[in-house]
């Protein structure tokens, strides 16, 4: 049965509504490369966040490094604000096993001790393998996706976001 995917732009608007009541002076965003970084960029603007936008590439913290090796093109992580005591929202496109979030948390703590950390995702596809949940989630798939399928965010030349299903 084909799965109906919602419009990513409407999901983004929903995410903004969810996060907005909790934004404070101490709020900072960190987007996970690549989809999460695109989202975080938009959220940062739409929510008018004061702290500079952070991005993180978890390649160096992945738990499958031993079996899969290094990602061929890791990006530079960039945390341009003081992590110490900041209220950080980690932003990712899709929440699946939770392993990427775990890696991002580990990396973040190497920069300092945040005051609190939340997770915001566009889409939850089920299949958690770690005790991790998103405080902000715009959409949860009605049923889990099979492991052979991958859900990805893409961005076109105009900057418009969309969700795509890919057969891995």
């Amino acid at each position: 049965m084909p799965i109906e995917l919602p419009n990513a732009e409407s999901l983004l608007a929903r995410l903004v509504d969810q996060i907005r009541p909790n934004v404070s002076e101490r709020t900072a965003l960190v987007g996970i490369h690549t989809g999460g970084a695109w989202l975080a960029e938009r959220l940062h603007r739409l929510l008018g966040i004061k702290a500079a936008l952070g991005t993180i590439d978890v390649s160096f913290y992945r738990d499958d490094f031993g079996s899969r090796g290094l990602h061929p093109r890791p990006q530079r992580s960039d945390i341009p604000f003081d992590v110490e005591s900041a209220d950080i929202i980690i932003v990712d496109d899709v929440l699946y096993t939770g392993r990427t979030t775990r890696a991002a948390l580990n990396e973040l703590f190497d920069y300092g001790r945040p005051g609190r950390v939340d997770l915001a995702v566009l889409c939850d596809r089920h299949g958690r393998e770690l005790p991790i949940g998103a405080r902000y989630c715009a959409f949860t798939l009605p049923q889990p996706l099979p492991a052979s399928r991958s859900l990805r965010l893409s961005r076109d030349a105009t900057g418009t976001l969309s969700l795509r299903l890919i057969d891995a």
Binding site: F60, L70, Q75, R76, D78, F109, D110
Partner: peptide, 23 residues
């Protein structure tokens, strides 16, 4: 080329409070 590309993000580790990666 891959070694040069991969080296770039490693330069940033020196600027962190904890200069360690778990690889």
């Amino acid at each position: 080329g891959a070694i040069l590309d991969i080296a770039a993000p490693f330069t940033e580790v020196a600027e962190r409070e904890v200069k360690k990666l778990p690889l």
